[in-house]
């Protein structure tokens, strides 16, 4: 998507462009998923199976599929409009997988989502998880649980880029980085 105007970056610095071995991208409408929610799981499992050649084993498959699914669900749920595209881009660089979900944000939720991203990037995530779960009792739409878990439990790098394009308004591109070298060292 062609950005215009200022770009706001929050979170980790993730290089999404250099030394990429391969990539693929899928574009869909949130409407597709509201017709058939299982498509998210199908797509996530496909990505995990496709990269099974590079990152073999059930542990890696479960990890990749889980992170991709969370980013897809997050993008679909927080899209501005069911008919505006969500773009999922998957890249591989050596022992890293980069997973990006790009969606248009509704105007009235932009500030709230920026605040969620700042919290995830700056706060103690164990405390934030407990706080968010208690908020969830009152507001089932309290957001960001999936993103908190990706960063907290899977040690993934996580970045958020907010930008504007003339056609669709404000977007957020959420990027997760899984470094399998680091993950193997933790085991």
């Amino acid at each position: 998507m062609q950005a215009s105007g200022k770009i706001l970056h929050i979170g980790d610095n993730i290089d999404f462009h250099n030394d990429i071995d391969n990539l693929f991208s899928v574009t869909f409408l949130p409407l597709d998923f509201f017709d058939s929610w299982e498509r998210g799981s199908l797509l996530s499992n496909f990505v995990a199976d496709y990269y099974g050649h590079n990152f073999p084993g059930p542990e890696a498959r479960n990890l990749i599929s889980t992170v991709v699914n969370e980013l897809i669900e997050n993008a679909v749920k927080f899209s501005r409009n069911n008919s505006m595209p969500v773009i999922i881009t998957i890249k591989k660089r050596k022992e890293e997988m980069l997973i990006q979900a790009d969606n248009c944000l509704p105007k009235h939720r932009q500030d709230a989502f920026v605040a969620v991203c700042r919290e995830i990037s700056e706060k103690d995530l164990d405390e934030l998880y407990v706080k968010r779960m208690h908020e969830n009792l009152k507001d089932p739409n309290s957001s960001g649980i999936g993103l908190i878990l990706i960063k907290k439990d899977y040690c993934a790098g996580l970045s958020f880029s907010f930008y504007t394009d003339d056609r669709h308004g404000t977007h957020v591109a959420v990027t997760a980085k899984l470094d399998f070298d680091d993950l193997r060292k933790q085991q």
């Binding site: 479960n62 699914n69 208690h134 009792l137 649980i145 999936g146 878990l149």
Partner: peptide, 17 residues
């Protein structure tokens, strides 16, 4: 349980509470 999404983790968390 091979996969549980964050909405499921939220639902079980609410049950635990």
């Amino acid at each position: 349980l091979i996969f549980l999404n964050s909405s499921g983790i939220s639902a079980i968390s609410l049950f635990i509470i």
